[in-house]
């Protein structure tokens, strides 16, 4: 009988302490993967100047990555499986469009305002279903974007099915790219830091076991509302950005895509790693773009790819890669 043994690499163990700064190699070991992501993302618009179409895909990809991050945070750190990604995007988008076109607020103010007010609004609307857990919460949150779509259609408010057009665009291509890339990086590293703070631990406690959190004298509903606020804010920013990118806000902002693709991305990238959500979208969105000229047949390829991932590497890419990076494996006799 043999079994695979996994052992942490010496360098990993050493870099966990303050000794990490003792040698160039160890500093590089820590910074390498992070720099790869940061520098890679920042250089991406320059590289893609050769292919303008793909440069535009990068923006949309980053929006999806933001929504995936908000899903991963809420599902794997707070235990709220929220299928309402499209709701956050839609609320943020419509608010920014309203601020910009009806009130004449410039884009650099309307996007932050839409982020904050949108997060407030989403949290307020989610309050009644915060006591729900698991699949019940998932189903109710799935209904929210559908509900708002129907309301806008039925009452013909906010431009009805035509949407709100004439939204300001970004002044130039670089603002367009870096507005989203910088925010994505800030959100990614910010969230990673946040979940390891004391308050982040409380949220993770809510996921593990909310009864104990209650018994510790902490109002669980408040904590969940806080988490939804953060998550909704991230999604609303994505929506507000999209509106200014398309110069138009319509009910397609509430599309199921924004609820489903981020979840698929988190599954592929590895749930609970946060960076996995980003990596997952960076694989999924370009893949679905590349398969666009295959027409509806792309759905088949898309499904096969997803199924293959779930069957063969259900832990997700990032979990796998992190393991390979930090540990070595060997066969030992039992």
């Amino acid at each position: 009988m043999r079994r695979k043994e996994r052992i942490d690499r010496g360098i990993k163990v050493r870099t966990e302490g303050i000794y990490a700064i003792s040698s160039m190699r160890e500093i590089l070991y820590l910074l390498g993967p992070r720099l790869l992501l940061i520098v890679g993302l920042i250089l991406l618009p320059f590289i893609l100047q050769l292919a303008p179409y793909w440069a535009r895909v990068v923006n949309i990809m980053c929006v999806y990555a933001l929504v995936a991050l908000s899903f991963d945070f809420l599902a794997n750190y707070v235990g709220l499986v929220c299928l309402g990604g499209g709701f956050f995007v839609g609320v943020g988008g419509y608010l920014s469009a309203i601020f910009n076109t009806y009130l004449g607020i410039p884009f650099y103010l309307s996007i932050p305002l839409a982020t904050v007010f949108g997060a407030f609004l989403c949290t307020l609307l989610f309050l009644p279903c915060l006591p729900l857990r698991g699949v019940y919460f998932a189903i109710v949150t799935l209904m929210y974007p559908l509900l708002l779509t129907r309301i806008i259609e039925a009452f013909d408010i906010l431009g009805g099915t035509n949407g709100i057009s004439g939204v300001d665009s970004f002044p130039n291509q670089y603002v367009e790219h870096y507005a989203i890339i910088v925010v994505l990086l800030l959100v990614l590293f910010g969230l990673r830091r946040f979940v390891n703070q004391d308050i982040g631990l409380v949220l993770r406690g809510v996921k593990d076991n909310d009864q104990s959190v209650r018994a510790s004298g902490i109002n669980v509903t408040h904590m969940k509302a806080l988490a939804v606020f953060i998550s909704a804010g991230i999604g609303c920013f994505g929506g507000a950005y999209l509106v200014h990118l398309y110069m138009w806000a319509g009910i397609s902002l509430f599309a199921l895509d924004f609820s489903i693709i981020p979840i698929a991305a988190v599954v592929i990238g590895g749930g609970g790693t946060l960076v996995g959500a980003v990596v997952g979208t960076f694989i999924l969105v370009p893949l679905s773009e590349a398969l666009r000229n295959l027409g509806t047949f792309r759905i088949v390829i898309y499904c096969v790819a997803l199924t293959a991932f779930i069957v063969l590497k259900s832990e997700g890419i990032m979990v796998y890669l992190q393991r390979k990076y930090h540990q070595f494996e060997r066969w030992v006799k039992v």
């Binding site: 004391d198 631990l201 409380v202 406690g205 510790s216």
Partner: peptide, 21 residues
């Protein structure tokens, strides 16, 4: 009902963070 995914000492951060503590 400990917080299974946290190390033992991090389990206490939650009550220590509570308004009372």
């Amino acid at each position: 009902r400990p917080y299974y995914s946290l190390p033992a000492f991090k389990n206490l951060i939650i009550p220590l963070w509570s308004p009372r503590a």
